[in-house]
Design a protein around this nucleic acid. Structure first.
Length: 517
RNA sequence: GCGGGAGUAGCUCAGUGGUAGAGCAUCAGCUUCCCAAGCUGAGGGCCGUGGGUUCGAUCCCCAUUUCCCGCUCCA
């Protein structure tokens, strides 16, 4: 079956079995926003717990925080988001290509510079060593003409950008007769602003209200709390701060189900290190994180690293962990060496000294940061797409049958255990309830007595329940039940008293965590 | 955002210018059978939304919204 078909079925399955619903569906939905259903929320919580425990519980030198979504607006100036997330865009109607309007105009400025430089080059060849470039630039008529054009355009462009005057940017592009490099045409749409940060107002009166942003990443909440945590937690470098929380980006194109959403959740850990050691720590975390992914057993071949060639303004090394989704290898997690960019910026903008006194060195420094940042929703999609299987099996009447099963890692499964009476009489239902009452404090249990036992097993397969316990007449005599395993469909007869330890062992972190060290 | 396709029951889909159907699913009862399809019955849809044409629109036209594919974008 084609991968796209599997993806479609997966999306349908997520809805049908209470994993993921489209947001506001009864009102026609809201673009690229999704809700998690009764099973989805359990899976998502389990994913978050698995990450959190592997960070905070497993590492003495990593602690967690939970910072607010609203933050002081200056934070986003310091972080660079206000500038980087505000792009005036324009489309060429013929080539259907989209450009940043400011980049088009900057290219035009560069063309003038190029022309001037060419004149200088020519003159250099002609006059040799005795050539005075400064004087030449001031006197050559062609350079003067170009310089004038450049100056005029630059002033106009800077003003338009400063005023966020989109119509003026469009007018500049028209006046400069800038053409699309692909189609060569000057058939442009209007310039539109795509502000990737959501804004709202804080303060209830119009005059007193100030514009604030919904955070586009959780990392800044960690950076601005660096001093608080380091001091109150008596943290010594190297140490990390972990956080799970929502972030918001007004994506131009948000698609592929929950892969790219406008409201999403991140699990981030910022690791503070001594300057100069950051690349060693970068390698260490790269290694640790890929082990974490592989520990879930979805197949090592389904992961790869993608090294960034073009680095962001703050980074000196960056790598993505990519997973093979039904629509191809895509980023799940990013590991970035962010240098001291963020803390230095906050130091500058806030005026507070954000440094660490290193007793070994006997001096203070702004720590360097290695970040691991994973999208919860992408992780969710990874887990569920890797787990979704359609199996051809032989039915009892000899016919071929398709069994749809979510082979979720038991530790992540929403429901760990279904307890069902083989028939709903002779005291079997009561016995089943008794077992659930005993085990529900340890595991998420589900009771089902409707339909044939085979049908009930299939229902549990569809939501990924790893264990089904069935009460039959023998149970009433000797206190044993059958336990049926989701993946193999095999059954064992075991004592009721042993159920807790059997299941506990299968959903223990211990083995998974052993692989992380 | 641009181009293309689609939107009918929880799911998969029929259907017609005269105010809607099937299979599966759901629920109740019977059946008691350890791997989904036994019997009986029930609930559920202003046919994505708004406007237009028409005596009358789920169907034709326009707009809009959502989803899918491609492009584009992506610290």
């Amino acid at each position: 079956m084609a991968q796209e078909d599997i993806f479609k079925k997966l999306v349908a399955h997520c809805k049908e079995y209470g994993y993921v619903f489209q947001s506001s569906e009864i009102y026609d939905g809201l673009g690229a926003v999704y809700d998690y259903g009764q099973n989805g929320v359990e899976l998502k919580n389990n994913i978050k717990k698995y990450w959190w425990d592997s960070m905070v519980r497993l590492n003495e030198n990593i602690v967690g925080i939970d910072s607010a979504i609203f933050m002081h607006p200056t934070i986003w100036k310091a972080s660079g988001h206000v500038d980087a997330f505000n792009d005036p865009l324009i489309d060429n109607k013929d080539s259907k290509k989209r450009y940043r309007a400011d980049v088009l105009i900057e290219d035009q400025l560069a063309k003038f510079e190029e022309k001037m430089n060419k004149e200088v080059e020519k003159a250099k060849k002609r006059f040799g060593d005795s050539f005075d470039e400064q004087q030449f630039r001031e006197t050559n008529p062609r350079i003067i003409a170009n310089q004038e054009k450049w100056n005029k355009l630059h002033v106009r462009f800077a003003k338009a950008l400063n005023d966020s005057d989109l119509a003026e940017l469009k007018q500049i592009i028209e006046d400069q007769e800038i053409a699309c490099p692909i189609s060569g045409s000057r058939n442009w749409t209007d310039v539109r602003q795509f502000n990737l940060m959501f804004a709202t107002e804080m303060g209830s009166t119009a005059e007193g209200a100030s514009k604030i942003f919904l955070r586009p990443e959780t990392a800044q909440g960690i950076f601005v709390n660096y001093l608080n945590v380091q001091k109150t937690g008596r943290m010594k470098i190297p140490f990390g701060i972990a956080q799970i929380g929502k972030a918001f980006r007004n994506e131009i194109v948000a698609r592929q189900f929950i892969f790219r959403m406008r409201e999403f959740e991140q699990m981030e850990m910022q690791f503070f290190v001594k300057p100069g050691t950051e690349l060693d720590w970068f390698d260490k975390w790269k290694n640790t994180r890929i082990k974490w992914h592989k520990s879930l057993g979805f197949g090592d071949d389904n992961y790869r690293f993608h090294e960034h060639e073009k680095l962001a303004h703050y980074a000196n090394a960056a790598v993505d962990v990519e997973f093979k989704f039904p629509f191809g290898f895509k980023e799940v997690e990013g590991i970035h060496s962010r240098t001291d960019f963020d803390l230095s910026q906050h130091q500058e903008y806030s005026g507070k000294k954000i440094q660490y006194y290193d007793p070994e060195l006997g001096e203070s420094y702004v720590p360097y940061v290695v970040e691991t940042s994973i999208g919860v929703d992408r992780m969710f999609l990874q887990v569920i797409s890797a787990s979704y299987q359609e199996e051809e099996i032989e039915s009892s009447n000899g016919k071929k049958d398709t069994r749809i099963v979510l082979k979720l890692p038991p530790i992540l499964a929403p429901v760990k255990l279904a307890v069902m009476p083989l028939v709903k009489k002779d005291g079997l239902p009561e016995k089943a309830r008794e077992i659930i009452d005993e085990l529900k404090f340890d595991f998420n249990c589900q009771y089902d007595e409707k339909d044939s036992i085979g049908k009930r097993y299939r229902r549990q397969d569809a939501i990924g329940t790893p264990f089904c316990v069935t009460i039959d007449h023998q149970t009433m005599e000797d206190q044993t039940v059958t336990i049926r395993y989701r993946d193999t469909m095999e059954q064992d007869r075991v004592a009721i008293a042993d159920l807790r330890s059997i299941i506990s062992e299968q959903i223990s972190y211990k083995q998974l965590f052993a692989n992380l060290k």
